[in-house]
Design a protein around this nucleic acid. Structure first.
Lengths: 348, 348
DNA sequence: TGTTAGCACTCGATCGCATCGAGTGCTAAC
DNA sequence: GTTAGCACTCGATGCGATCGAGTGCTAACA
């Protein structure tokens, strides 16, 4: 176990390194501390901390930097109740969510921008994806003789749309009655059960309204498949290029993998979804990330909820040398605000 | 005016530099040409071309690179009918647009990815924005007692949605009749005329169906404002990080402004919209770009159309040392394919 | 036993300097 | 008009000297 003094030194080293991005020397700590310890004493402690695995030395004559384990200890034990957000910042966060909700799309995007602007890191927001959502309504709007738009509204308020071209031999009227039947029979059905219910209960009824049985079944199948298909939430990025501001990514070859990974929204989603748990806040430091490209990064995520159910994730990606003391409470407040807003709207 | 030989040399220099990204020397050209000219002769011609402004010398003892003017001449006069796409590539482009259209969103995104993968540059796609589009249909789907989703389908097939919270004192039924009236009176109206027509013709009728006149007018105003509000097309990027692959952007400080600019979708849109003209293809080389951040880049854009009307833009951004000979016909084919697909769907 | 001053040592960063070589411009000859 | 020859330029590369921040170790001190 670490002594109080060691903890204090570790903490100071992290705090310093987070700001300066340069190895921290014993003299620096000695001057900042008010315990009146000399650099030599600090040096001894630092050597011990290194031996214990909390610190590293880039090269023999340099200062120390925190190891992954050092950051982990810092986050887990040295940050208790240490909120470095100014009161001003907290009110600013709150005010972000007072306005109308409008389009969820916009809320997510703005949250990402807000986060990245405030932190100089890269923000990631996973749009809400409600698992126990039900089908609310289906609409067909004809554009012309052979094309129509199929609209689907989920109970969570999400809207999905798809342009369909009418199959040969199916009239608009037939299509409309198909949709009417689906609406009557399926609204209220959980999304994941749509397919089975549709095939069990409705095939025959649909077929009755259409001349071509084969075509009817085929069409129904297509529509239903789409309805149930994975409507994976979207990924919203903010400040991806902030990555380039960080000294550790000044070299293009360091930055490239991360930025490229960020471009593959599907992978990003997968990585973040896995953190979407009842655990409100997750911190993954360096190698703790499963994703290879993030081994030099830290990922801090918070889950937001609707009516207590986790539906999405907001997060920040930066170098392992991240300002955890600011980032963690920031994400906490923000996810709280977002959850409250969404709950107010969509629960009742 | 340039002699044939000068043109040929200029052309070879551009072709070489595009590939190697290194200044081209006289010996290189001399060996590649089959006219049997010595390096010295080439050198004389190169000196002339430089004096005329078509070439530049990074420093005294280096080879030549094309100037902005050189690229311009190359694009305008040396590229006639020079299609360097393989037959395979052309069929691949065509096959990209044979499938169902599904969601326009996806088509745009995939086009961007396809373009960036094929070229190693950054692709930009401006989602379709139809100016003379009309209102097709309006739908209100209630989610619960105080929240509903308002859907709008435009004649171009685009779908816009917005979550609205019911104002105090307005019942769902009132809201529904408002939407019914709007549908009856406004469908078929050009988007830009919605506001004036609504205010002129409908206010009274709406008020008749609602208890609170003030509230009715206010609500109508809100909805109508949203309907007419600028539904600006979205921007889809592909391969933004490809920028970092280019030697000229190996230095983070060179790449950062461009990537940051690309993140501001609104600015990107503005820049590309201005190229959306009857002119099918636009090439903006280096300083020809109005945007300061693109002064070291070239932007090649092609307009795509629906039924002959320009509605969107696809483009590629790369270093001025861009492979115009490939990029230009590529964008040509792609915009053609996209136009055909969209026209087939949405015109009738 | 913990703390500290002193000191030799390490090692990256920076600078100057020599070298190398691709490529040029110029001149004179063909 | 073309070309061979040649001196010259200038970035790139490599090497060694120097500098300095920071260390580890030792010995003295409280």
């Amino acid at each position: 176990m670490l002594t109080d003094r060691q903890m204090m030194i570790l903490r100071m080293i992290v705090d310093n390194y987070v700001i300066s991005a340069e190895p921290v020397g014993s003299r620096t700590i000695s001057k900042q501390t008010d315990l009146g310890l000399s650099a030599a004493t600090i040096r001894n402690e630092m050597a011990d901390l290194e031996e214990l695995g909390y610190l590293e030395q880039p090269h023999a004559s340099a200062g120390r930097i925190p190891s992954q384990m050092g950051y982990r200890f810092y986050v887990d034990h040295l940050l208790m109740g240490d909120t470095r957000l100014s009161g001003q910042e907290i009110t600013r966060i709150k005010s972000l969510f007072t306005e109308r909700i409008g389009e969820m799309e916009r809320v997510a995007q703005q949250t990402a921008l807000f986060l990245s602007n405030l932190t100089q890191y890269t923000a990631v927001v996973l749009g809400p994806q409600v698992y126990d959502t039900t089908l609310k309504n289906l609409q067909l709007v004809a554009l012309n003789d052979h094309t129509a738009v199929l609209l689907m509204v989920a109970s969570s308020g999400q809207v999905y749309n798809r342009t369909v071209s009418m199959p040969e031999g199916v009239s608009l009227r037939e299509m409309e009655s198909l949709v009417r039947i689906l609406n009557a029979r399926l609204s209220g059905t959980p999304m994941y059960r749509i397919r089975s219910r549709a095939l069990e209960e409705i095939t025959h009824e649909v077929a009755r309204h259409m001349r071509d049985y084969e075509e009817a079944v085929h069409l129904l199948d297509q529509v239903v498949t789409w309805l149930e298909s994975d409507k994976e939430g979207k990924v919203y990025l903010g400040g991806a290029t902030n990555m380039l501001l960080q000294p550790e990514f000044r070299d293009v070859h360091k930055a490239q993998p991360v930025l490229t990974w960020l471009e593959r929204h599907h992978d990003v989603m997968e990585a973040l979804r896995s953190d979407e748990s009842t655990l409100q806040l997750q911190v993954r430091i360096g190698g703790e990330n499963d994703v290879q490209s993030l081994h030099d990064c830290s990922l801090v995520t918070a889950t937001y909820t609707i009516g207590g159910l986790p539906v999405g994730v907001i997060g920040l990606i930066g170098p392992t040398r991240m300002d955890y003391a600011r980032v963690i409470p920031l994400l906490g407040h923000l996810s709280k605000g977002l959850s409250d807003l969404l709950t107010k709207f969509y629960v009742n």
